[in-house]
Amino acid sequence: MLDPVIRTDRLTRYFNRRAVVRDLSLGVPRGQVTALLGLNGAGKTTTIRIIMGLLRPTRGRCEVLGQNSSGLSPEARMRIGYMVEGHYLYPGMRVSECAKFQRAGYSRWNDAQFDQIVSHFGISQSTHVAHLSRGQRAGVCLALVLAPDPELLVLDDPALGLDPVSRRALNETLVEFAADGQRTVLLSSHLLDDVERIADRVMLMIDGRLQVDTTLDDFRDRVTGYVLEADVVDPDRVAAIPGLIEARRLGCRLHLTVADADEETSAAVERLQGSSVESIDLPFTDSVLAWLSRSRQQQSFLGRKRTGEHA
């Protein structure tokens, strides 16, 4: 990958005896918006905290802006905008005081940028933080991380709990921030529609492991759906379909989601039904859901774990 801004190599983190992040090797390329997806507990926040140097990995390496993330220099830190999950602010401050407080830690600070974002979220500078709505707090947090004009933006679930108007303001701000193609964004999210709009790349974590790391277009191209008219199917034969991500029964039909389908895949699918089957293009959201559902289905007969997982 050309010039990754964040690079991890076999990153692993245990909490007590539980591995929360396992063997994570990823690269976040410069100038792109990368979305980190996964269910709650998949390891997204832990990964982000390691990237930001707030948590040491048990094993493995993590580099950000060319430096080891557990020893980031203050200069490197100033080039990174980091927004923690939850939109926390000191409740006793006015919005303008938040800015004054934050700017003390940065050599660069763009007042106009701060003002513009805050007003985009419909907030007055003199308001006390305690009186802001969740969406407005998100706006202030975003303005605080963008005012130092960072070249790397790391956002941990920035859309969590936002109303639709604040969500749109957030998306607009991010699109604008990334539009010059020089600045890099890594954000975690559960909002697949927003990700489809604003992201270049998608990374998908399941149980601490990275299952998908590619462009949105490539992800779409490589995930295929089949709908079978089959009443009774042998679960072992379903599980044996090459590249199977998920199998779901809807009424008398069987919906299959498959990665990297080739002739062997369609042959296996057709043997199941006993006649020819056409593949269908899946919406981005459905493809992601299929991957995420798989991790919840490992008990069920259709979701049994396959060897030789798609990487």
């Binding site: 918006v33 607009e172 699109v175 539009a179 709009r197 992201a199």
Partner: peptide, 13 residues
Amino acid sequence: VRALAGELVLNAN
């Protein structure tokens, strides 16, 4: 590209 991306709230790429 940038104006349309902003208007439609879409990634400029």
